[in-house]
Amino acid sequence: MMKEQWMEVLNNRPIALDTYEMTLHGKLASSMTQPGQFLHLKIGDGFRHVLRRPLSIADVDQEDQTVKIIYKVIGEGTKWLSQAKPGNQIHVLGPRGHGFPVENVADQHIYLIGGGVGVPPLYYLGKQLAENNRVTAVLGFQTKDAVFYEEKFQELGETMILTDDGSYGKRGLVTDVLESKMDLYYSCGPLGMLHAVTRKLNDVKGYVSLEERMGCGIGACFACVCKTTDPNDERGYRKICKDGPVFPAKEVVLWQI
């Protein structure tokens, strides 16, 4: 199976405050069938940037062999990405990791709970789930200018938008509106949000996708690990890049001492 490719940038546009959607084209897209996996992108020429940037898959079009990623410009690496023009080539390693389990999920009422740039992988997930399930999206953003993909999620099911400052949608946190009557949930966002979500939905089966600064992205360097909740677990930890980034909500420790 293909593990890497120079993919061509087809489109790279701002969709919200400091937030860009990039469309990449290449055969590698054919292998991107599992929602929640990530792409490990090379930044810049040569070895000036020695670490790749892990970015989750927001959407895939198998027919066109395209993949969409959404990223927020935070540092040098994402700034470089934001300056990529159509026709440029970007080296992609992936898809990597284990994504959201969707097989045999049918006739369920499912929450998609996202925060900020944790929202993108939930879209590709939602598209797959919405075929056989009822989907409700609860998406939190800092402010009105940061909101993206609202209409796309509305096509999948009921969609609630919350902002920290109340400038759009409801004011507050995603946990303010969550109810325990659901069958299943999938969540991606900041660690604090994930922790709050798993507590609020303690009785509901769920999956969380974790983010961490990564090294190799293939499981060899032990840069991105998290602890497991089970004291009798043989290893006591999980590699986020390889065992995850998606984990059953109760399998991993979501707070740091």
Partner: peptide, 10 residues
């Protein structure tokens, strides 16, 4: 187990 994360920075 090693150190807490983040463990790497560019």
């Amino acid at each position: 187990y090693g150190n807490p994360t983040p463990r790497v920075a560019e």
